[in-house]
């Protein structure tokens, strides 16, 4: 089914001067899928997400979202997607409510008050509505960022390391919330994380990147088997060290 794919990336390349951040990347993401973009620091994950949001212009290749060309229909696409990332913050000097109210109106939400109340309830933020954002804990800020990212009922949600800097308990809560949202709303999620246990729990399929190139693609279990690794984390280490996927046994021998 043609409309099964919500994101289709073909031959995507991004060069910054002499540095190639992403090279000839091709992949597709199905509707309702949780798709992991994995790889070591500098592998090109964040660049790929920014390219998929039209924040960065590609050097070559095409990106189609909902069957629409991103370059030509960026604003129409942005109405249907959203992002929560650790490197993006909401203004710390506005209250939780004010921040959400501004973004609800930016996304043209018809009944902003009702939508904000519904999401604050879902993300356990209702009691913090009039707190200034800068006074919130890391966990609360993560939930607020998620709340903002859900305001427009996105069909695709980009989550760039959503649980980074959270303690394990809070990270587990955030994962529970994300799973609940994904299951009840059928949102497609594009997910990056360095926590491989989290990736195993969250992702249906993953794409491993190394030095801007796609190294492996499949379910977490398939990747683990292909790497003959004991865990996804071991597979990650193999790829991070060698920039390609091969036997763990081979690596151990070489060590």
């Amino acid at each position: 089914m043609a409309d099964e794919w919500v994101i289709e990336v073909d031959g995507l390349t991004k060069r910054f001067g002499n540095v190639t951040a992403v090279e000839d990347l091709s992949f597709s993401i199905r509707r309702g899928e949780v798709f992991g973009l994995l790889g070591p620091n500098g592998a090109g994950k964040t660049t790929t997400i920014q390219l998929m949001l039209g924040l960065t212009t590609p050097t070559a290749g095409t990106i189609r979202v909902f069957g629409l060309d991103l370059q030509r229909h960026r604003r129409a696409i942005l109405r249907r997607v959203n992002l929560a990332a650790t490197y993006v913050s909401l203004p710390t000097n506005l209250t939780v409510w004010e921040n959400l109210n501004v973004f609800a109106r930016l996304y043209g939400i018809r009944k902003p008050r009702a939508k904000i109340e519904e999401l604050m309830e879902l993300l356990d933020l209702a009691h913090l509505a009039w707190r200034v954002t800068g006074t919130l804990s890391s966990g609360q800020i993560t939930r607020l960022n998620l709340c903002k990212a859900l305001l427009n009922d996105p069909e695709v949600l980009f989550l760039d390391e959503p649980t980074a800097s959270l303690d394990p308990e809070v990270a587990a809560r955030v994962r529970d919330i994300l799973r609940q949202i994904q299951q009840t709303r059928g949102i497609t999620m594009v997910f990056t994380s360095h926590n491989m246990r989290e990736v195993e729990l969250m992702c249906d399929r993953v794409l491993f990147l190394a030095r801007g190139r796609a190294v492996a693609q499949g379910t977490p279990a398939e990747i683990q088997i292909r790497a003959r690794a004991r865990s996804l984390e071991d597979a990650f280490i193999v790829i991070a060290r060698d920039g390609r996927l091969h036997d763990v046994a081979e690596v151990t021998e070489a060590d």
């Binding site: 913050s89 909401l90 203004p91 930016l106």
Partner: peptide, 11 residues
């Protein structure tokens, strides 16, 4: 305040 991306990914 690192909000620029939120603004630029809004429609």
């Amino acid at each position: 305040v690192r909000n620029i991306m939120n603004v630029f990914i809004a429609p």
